[in-house]
Design a protein around this nucleic acid. Sequence first.
DNA 1: GACTAGATTGACAGCATGTCAAGGGGAAAC
DNA 2: GTTTCCCCTTGACATGCTGTCAATCTAGTC
Lengths: 167, 167
Amino acid sequence: MGDVAERAGVSRQALYLHFADRTTLFLEVSRLADSSLRTPARQRRIDQAPTARDAFREAIALQAWLKPRLRGVATALDVLRRSDAAADAAWKEREHARMERCKQVIRRLRDEDQLAPPWDLHTAARCFWAVTSQRVWDDLVMDQGWSMAQYRTHITTLLEAALLRQE
Amino acid sequence: MGDVAERAGVSRQALYLHFADRTTLFLEVSRLADSSLRTPARQRRIDQAPTARDAFREAIALQAWLKPRLRGVATALDVLRRSDAAADAAWKEREHARMERCKQVIRRLRDEDQLAPPWDLHTAARCFWAVTSQRVWDDLVMDQGWSMAQYRTHITTLLEAALLRQE
DNA sequence: GACTAGATTGACAGCATGTCAAGGGGAAAC
DNA sequence: GTTTCCCCTTGACATGCTGTCAATCTAGTC
């Protein structure tokens, strides 16, 4: 809190005039970051893709674009949730929303008969969700040194080969 | 440290007679857990599998067996490494060792010509490594409620479809 | 019986979060 | 011009955790 206050140019105590506690501050920052980055225009690129396969690729591309930008807040929230019930609830809410968007993409795949056997909607969505998590991005880009383009390319290849019906 | 001491039946200060600090304690516990669970016999099931594809499946099965047992230490180390250089180094060492074992499995796949195009050894190994991380297990089993059998089955299906040449 | 190793108790410093009281200072209202 | 209000400041303090230190206790060994 001291560091945040210093960077903000206010006293440490002044933070408590705006945020109930450290967790609340993180939560509000994460909501702000989410809503300012995940704009309707970006979501439309997925929703209005001509085919399910295009929507699938756009969804991965959006994740690849978001990950580095949400990295700070997402990681902070993830660490915090180990010891804080409010942070855990916020993390679950975030990830539930992301899961719903994953399901949307997989549902369209299924409806256009592009989902490879033996996948069903929920199982495929969960795999898609898990592979496109912040943590996998961190592991590959931060720890293994992949570029963002490499992440996007290889994760797209991986998920296409795994979930899409062979053409 | 107070909780650990209480559970161990010694005074809090006595811990510092055996471990330099909290990080060292976590590190030694994680090394102990690793070496007591990852026995040569279990590794042999992978090394002595008749085919590369069998070794591949055995490697996933071993990960699926280890994850719940190493969950506590692995997660603690992962949280700790955000704020502790020694924990970060230990985590990197652990994951480097795991990556080498992943490469071993993928190398055999490649040598038996079972690695699907367009994968190369390093890229496929990194994908395999990332998908079989502790965090993905946590996400799917702890948060999404998958059973260990579901984790093993679906991750095997996912990675086989993604990395193995179609039969 | 003396010595040693390992444990205990109690006290303490340092640091972070969160709370409280008292007061300053500027802008709007009167 | 004064009053009022709001936001902020400073300084102090409680709490809880990590890590350290000194003094002491105890069981086994020589």
